[in-house]
Design a binder for these strands. Structure first.
Length: 668
DNA sequence: GCTGCATGCGTTTTT
DNA sequence: CGCATGCAGC
């Protein structure tokens, strides 16, 4: 890759802290990649002494894939390129004891945390909503507050209730040998602060730390970063305040400024040349973001071609929008003889993908959805994951409760209540409580026998899992409980049964693929369960042979990526900007989100909006997004905006699609 | 203890 | 509209 002077300076600045203020499309990922290569090849750094951190799995994968091309897979394997959470997990996994954890600890995802809170809220008769409580607790944890401190600082009834929940929640986690996502950052920070041995070990190892999308760092992640590079480490952080879109997760765009206070010798390099987007796209994006205040003055420019006008398509309703976009993609794919993977549909919220999936399926267009955890939300997937978690960590009460009676083992709420109370009185997990002789004081007869039979089965399977051939154990477990039969009987239509079985097979397939790691060695079941918990899977297909499919993803997930042709859909008030942001009068972040979306596009950018939209089944009118009004009129063509009908637009699209169809048939 | 139906509820974004 | 939870009936 040819580097411009600023990029080159950023690559060669290796010994002291460096902040790269990198505008969208200014080649920042390239700089990180080149810099890692430079450190290894020119500066003789050991690959394992370089740690690169990203915020999403997708970004980490992307970076690894680019490094592989540059340095080869053997080198990349030794590098540490991961999300902050994965890095924290690695620290915890090497030294769980100082954090009060044991080997095989469980990672709870958000929905696990919610169900624990739901249970605690019921127990405590607490007036809070689970989601509110979770957000409170997460905020406290990210600020390193203990439940006691939170309670002491509580200045309202709500905060007091929350702090009491927090106390029990933490107790629950510890007694289940479990951590939540916040703990994956917080506990490593605590360990590094308090355990000299672990600190020495990590600080001795890290010689250069690179943080991508630095503007998304929160206080806890920043602490982790500081601790890791405290001794010998040099630091490269790359960020853009205009692309800060995670403030809801505690990210502080002003972290770009406070960095100067913590590192007085910080060098700042700006990257202002955009190598990605056409002039028009860049101009339009700049026009949108110019309404925001800026921390740093920077003017992004490009010497690429002027490019086509941006297209705004006005549709009647959601189905029409999806249909039109799918039709356009089909048409343009044939006209331009390009790949389906050159097209990307971006939206604010995951649920918006539905209509587009349907429209693409109907037209037989291959597509690929990134993120949108719907797969992991499915009951059958959660159940299976709970079984696997239990094999690795039988003290995981959340998983225990989930599957103890799935499939039916005739262990009902009554039995579980008694078992739960007993376990709590002995401050132990449900699993180990089931082994205690004293349990016979609260349970007897058939209920007792059923519980004991379940835990001894679990013990047996867990022992098998530890001994190896994890795949055989996984298969064995689901065969043993006749999980396929259970899914079939529990589904209310044959069609649904089919879907559930398909999910089951998909998960098994994933697990099979994850069984073997990059070194062709067997991964432990624990490692696989961790990865599944972090939704960190290997990419479905080889890097060498990318899937030729239209990309569907949220604006958040698109950050850091680029695509030839982009469709930003649902450009309406209450969608983008989102309803809640309008209510909270916090539009700036939504504007940045819009900016991020627009700057993903290389050659063409199409924005769509609907006149009306089905919300909760009701149809209601939609207003155009305020961001559309900021686009320079000379760079935009609007279609379908004539009165109440789109006949002209559809006629045009229809004839074009027909021409494409003819061509397709003539080739066949 | 389980199944079926009705009602009521809700949708940001990610690890 | 689609899902989850809750209640009534078996």
């Amino acid at each position: 890759m040819a580097l411009n002077p600023q990029q080159l300076a950023a690559v060669k600045h290796t010994d002291t802290p460096l902040l790269v203020l990198a505008g969208a499309g200014s080649g920042k990922t390239g700089v990180i990649t080149e810099k890692i290569a430079y450190l290894i090849e020119k500066k003789q750094y050991q690959p394992r002494s370089i740690v690169a951190v990203t915020f999403t799995n997708k970004a980490a994968q992307e970076m690894k894939s680019r490094l592989s091309k540059k340095l080869g897979k053997d080198v990349v394997r030794q590098l540490s390129v991961s999300t902050f959470h994965r890095l924290g997990l690695n620290i915890l996994r090497e030294s769980p004891e100082p954090a009060g954890l044991r080997k095989g600890f469980t990672i709870l995802d958000q929905s696990d945390a919610i169900s624990i809170l739901k249970e605690l809220i019921r127990e405590q008769n607490c007036p809070l909503e689970e989601r509110t409580a979770q957000h409170m607790i997460s905020t406290w944890k990210s600020a390193f507050l203990t439940p006691e401190q939170a309670l002491a600082a509580a200045d309202s009834d709500q905060a007091t209730s929350g702090a009491l929940l927090f106390r029990d929640y933490e107790q629950w986690l510890r007694s289940c040998n479990s951590v939540d996502f916040d703990d994956l950052i917080n506990l490593p920070v605590q360990i590094l602060k308090t355990d000299p041995q672990v600190r020495e070990q990590w600080q001795g190892r890290v010689r250069h730390l690179l943080v991508d999308e630095y503007q998304d760092t929160n206080v806890a992640q920043y602490s982790l970063m500081q601790l890791l590079m405290d001794k010998f480490g040099a630091l490269t952080v790359v960020g853009d305040d205009d692309q800060s879109i995670y403030s809801w997760r505690g990210a502080r765009p002003d972290g770009l400024i406070t960095l100067k206070d913590d590192y007085p010798n910080l060098r700042v390099i700006k990257l202002e040349q955009n190598y990605r987007s056409s002039q028009r796209i860049l101009r339009a994006a700049n026009a949108v973001i110019s309404h925001n205040p800026h921390l740093f003055e920077k003017k992004l420019w490009s010497d690429l071609a002027i490019g086509d006008e941006l297209c705004i398509s006005v549709c009647r309703h959601g189905l029409d929008e999806a249909d039109w976009v799918a039709g356009q993609i089909l048409m343009r794919q044939y006209q331009k003889k390009c790949n389906f993977s050159d097209f990307t549909i971006l939206y604010r919220s995951n649920f918006q993908s539905r209509h587009f999936e349907k429209a693409l399926r109907e037209k037989n267009i291959p597509y690929q959805i990134t993120g949108g955890s719907s797969f992991f939300d499915k009951a059958e997937v959660k159940d299976m994951l709970a079984y696997l978690k239990l094999l690795v960590n039988p003290d995981d009460d959340t998983a225990f409760i989930r599957v103890v009676n799935t499939p039916r083992r005739e262990i009902g709420p009554n039995t579980m209540m008694k078992l739960g109370e007993y376990a709590r009185s002995r401050s132990t997990s449900l699993f180990s409580a089931s082994h205690e002789m004293g349990l016979e004081t609260v349970l007897s007869g058939k209920p007792l026998a059923r519980v004991q039979s379940f835990v001894s089965w679990l013990t047996l399977q867990g022992d098998n899992a530890e001994r190896g051939d994890a795949m055989a154990v996984v298969q064995g477990v689901f065969d043993d409980i006749h999980y396929r039969d259970w899914l079939e009987t529990t589904a209310d239509t044959p069609k649904q049964a089919e879907k559930m079985l398909a999910s089951m097979d998909e998960l098994l397939e994933w697990i099979g693929r994850m069984m073997v790691d990059e070194d062709q060695k067997d991964r432990s079941l624990a490692e696989i369960v961790n990865r599944l918990s972090l939704h960190d899977m290997l990419s479905r297909q080889d890097d060498d042979k990318p899937l030729n499919a239209v990309n569907l993803l949220t604006l958040h997930a698109a950050k850091g990526l680029e695509f030839p042709h982009v469709y930003m859909v649902g450009m309406e008030e209450e969608m983008l900007p989102h309803k809640n942001s309008i209510e909270d009068e916090d539009i700036e972040e939504e504007r940045r989100l819009c900016y991020v979306g627009m700057t993903r596009a290389r050659y063409s950018l199409t924005l769509t909006r609907c006149r009306s939209r089905q919300r909760y089944g009701e149809s209601s009118l939609s207003e155009p997004s305020r961001f559309l009004a900021d686009l320079p009129p000379e760079d935009v063509v609007t279609i379908g905006d004539v009165g109440e009908n789109n006949e002209e637009r559809d006629r045009q699209a229809g004839t074009d699609a027909l021409a494409s169809l003819r061509e397709m048939l003539s080739r066949a």
